[in-house]
Write a protein that binds this DNA or RNA. Structure first.
Lengths: 179, 179
DNA sequence: CTAATCATGTAAGGCGTTACATGATTTT
DNA sequence: AAAATCATGTAACGCCTTACATGATTAG
């Protein structure tokens, strides 16, 4: 069982979705959890159906393809529940900006400073975006653990925290590389 | 040019290393920058040598293989310097724990709470470890941008910040999932 | 009239992980 | 005597990205 499979089970945990809707959610991590391309998602959904983890209803779509509305089977839901409570396997963080930083002595200092200033800007934008979404989620009561959307809210909070961390780090570098 | 190539150029930016030494540094990200397996590293070093980005001296080793001490060529150093100042391409963060959190409603609440408590513990340990390394680096003056090890120090600071962020988030979840 | 959206899929190729292989020296 | 360290490599396989393909409806 690959992590992608669990990601798809997780995507379906709160209710049925079409492959297309899953693709939308996983393209840009709006909340902040996982990503995958459609060329990975469609075949995997087919395999999961063959393995009895999910099934689907078929409905006519606007284009040449019918819509397949996927939902978890009892087996799929059990598999998900069992996986959720197991400790995650740590996969190493790979961040290009951090890698560049390791070798920053090999580049022009002012150019590197400009890089961090530009990255800080990007993180500030994304942070503002996430903060707005977080406020909206709180207004709708998603911050209550009893609310079914609490999980999505918690991932959003991680997104906020991560963006803030990156922003602070970039700003620290901009200051440190002065002169 | 893959990111792995740039990671290897970055690894060699401060001086020559054998493939084995690079493997050690990239296995568990001591600072916090990049990882790769030896089965990726050795063939890539060979290809980079063929492409003129690095070259090496050969010396007798203790085992059946000679040591190859790799260093950047002028072309390799130029390629690295040019890459460093370009904006990094964002690759989506994939964190299994965050993924699990998204679907946390599908699992037993107390079991999830135990999971976050255990994860908090791991992050606390790693944070302490990184903090000790950071203090040592500062005592040796690596926090000065003029010091050639400043880049490694800056990546370590990112490691510290990231661990602290994850720790806080796990502890927040433990509190929120109470009762 | 052009472009985007909805909706599902296939093909090719590169990136990354796990496992296998060798063998002398040093540590337990 | 057994295990770890040093040191470099290959093989198999799966994951992931980029690109291609179809075609009706809706928005600009």
């Amino acid at each position: 069982m690959s992590t992608l499979r669990y990601a798809l089970l997780a995507a379906l945990h709160a209710g049925p979705l079409t492959g297309y809707e899953i693709v939308q959610r996983m393209r840009r991590p709006i909340g902040y959890y996982w990503t995958a391309q459609q060329s990975q998602i469609y075949p995997e959904l087919a395999r999961m159906t063959a393995d009895g983890l999910i099934d689907h209803d078929v409905a006519a779509g606007p284009g040449p393809h019918d819509r397949k509305i996927h939902r978890l089977t009892a087996a799929g839901r059990a598999e998900l529940a069992q996986w959720l409570v197991q400790p995650p396997q740590r996969r190493p963080p790979k961040d290009e900006l951090v890698l560049k930083t390791y070798a920053l002595a090999a580049a022009d200092r002012e150019a590197m400073r400009a890089l961090y200033r530009a990255e800080a800007q990007k993180h500030r934008r994304r942070l503002d975006d996430y903060l707005a979404q977080q406020a909206q989620a709180e207004a709708q009561g998603h911050d209550d653990p009893a609310n079914p959307k609490f999980g999505a809210y918690a991932t959003l909070r991680m997104g906020v925290a991560a963006e803030r961390t990156m922003l602070d780090w970039c700003e620290w570098l901009v200051l440190r590389l002065e002169r």
